[in-house]
Every structure is written in structure tokens, then in C-alpha cells.
Simulated scan of single mutants.
Amino acid sequence: MDDPVTGRTILPGRTILLSGGTSRAGAVVAAAGLAAGATVLVAGRDPHKLDRLRAEVAGIATFRCDLTDEADVDALRSAVHAAHGAVDGILHLVGGWRGGGGLAGQTETDYRALETSLTALRLVSRAFDADLRASDAGREAIVSSTAVARPLAGGANYAAVKAACEAWTRAVAQGFAKAARDADEPQRAAAVIFRVRALAGLEQTLADAFLGLWSASAADLGTEPVELGAGTPN
């Protein structure tokens, strides 16, 4: 349902989780989610960033969690369920950039730092998979990069990790579709890839796109990446 005045998707009764959502993008999506009537949860590792986010966006609930640690993510699921029940949507915002210097400048340390986004995606999506399948409108989304389609030597590590995140998300989407087919039921859950050149300047665009997923049927969302715009170059 859309608000006839603002056009914003109304999400009363929905619970959404922003995984690694302590960034500027997380704050904007959190505020938009609250305005749309959703319960908004944010998970992150840094307690100071979580405190600042709660002060900036009144009404959200935050959970301290190392999203790259399986036991911590399992504890997050238990804490979320105890306080708010199952979730209907997840937006993965664990990310970052390291690159430059061609292939010679792509260090193993850089790769391992970037790889945390893939690890967090895998752990969180597995932990809350049953929630999204059980929801009458489960939605999961990642923020990827146009670098996947146009990789450069100086961003090889970054593009490789983002490509892996996209592959994982496509697999999640396939699982949702297969489960619906096997049960001979309408598809209710979907996983979506958003691509940006740079996220800075596109925070509200991301918020609108993510919340807008509930305005479309799961089967119509598909698995092709959705480019959100140019953003502000780094």
C-alpha cells in the first residue's frame, strides 16, 4: 500500500533488519522505514556507532553483533526473536572500499577486510532464512557495485567480493522461488541486488528502492541487478 500524499510505501506490522546499518545509508533507510510504519532493527559491531544512530533516529532498536561471527549472529537471531519476533526484510549494508595500485596493489590484507561483507551476508541470510520464507512478503537485498560488470585491476579484490555477494544473493533468490514451486504456492519471498557506482548521494534512493520492494510481488522482482544511479564518485 502507498501513501496517496507522499507516495511512500506503508509497511505497518513489518519488521526490517539493517545488517551493518550504522552508516549514513543505514540512518536514512532506518528513518524512512520508521516513517513507513515498519519496526526497524539495526545490527552492528561498534557500540558507539549504534548509540549515535539511536540518538539520530529515534524509535529504532539496535543490537550489538559481530556479523562475521556465526555464534554472534545466532545470538542476534535469538535476541531479535525474543524482542520483536520474526523479521520480514533484511538490507545488508556491511561493506567498504580498498583498492588502487593495479594488481600489485591488491594485498591479501585488503582482500580479507573486504571479504567480511561476504561472510556477514552468508551468516545473516542463513540465520534469518526461515523468517523470510515464513513471512507473507519476505524481502532481502544487498548493495553491490557496478564494478562487478566493469572490473578494473585496481579494484580486483573489491569486484571479486561483490561478485561473490551477488552470486550468493542469486542463490538465495533461487531458493525462495524453488520452495514456492515445490509447495505449489505463490512465491512470497525475494532477494534483490542493488548496484551503485558509489552509495554517497544515493542514500534516499536506496531507502525508496528497498522499501518499494513490498509494493511488487516477489515473483516479479526477479534476479537481475537493479542500478540505482551514479551517486557521488569517491
Rank of each mutant, 00 (worst) to 15 (best):
M1T: 13
T6D: 09
G7I: 03
I16V: 15
S19F: 05
A27R: 04
G33I: 01
G37W: 08
G37P: 07
T39P: 04
V40M: 10
R45D: 06
R45V: 07
R52Y: 09
A58G: 14
F63P: 06
F63Y: 14
R64Y: 05
C65G: 05
L67T: 00
L67Y: 06
A75Q: 13
S78R: 14
S78E: 13
H81A: 10
H81R: 15
H84A: 10
V87D: 00
V94Q: 11
G102N: 07
Q106N: 12
Q106F: 10
T107S: 15
E108K: 13
T109R: 12
E115S: 13
L118P: 02
L118Q: 11
A120H: 06
L123W: 01
D129E: 15
D131P: 03
D131A: 07
S135W: 01
S135L: 05
D136W: 09
G138E: 02
A141C: 11
A141I: 08
I142L: 12
A149W: 00
A149I: 00
A149G: 11
R150F: 13
P151K: 06
L152W: 13
G154R: 04
G154N: 06
N157L: 03
K162S: 10
A163W: 00
E166I: 04
E166R: 07
W168K: 06
F176S: 05
A177Q: 06
A177W: 05
A180E: 02
D182R: 04
A183G: 05
R188N: 06
A189N: 01
A189D: 04
A191M: 11
G201T: 10
L202S: 03
A207M: 06
D208E: 15
L213A: 00
S215A: 15
A216M: 15
A219I: 12
D220S: 14
D220W: 00
E224S: 14
P225R: 11
L228V: 04
A230Y: 02
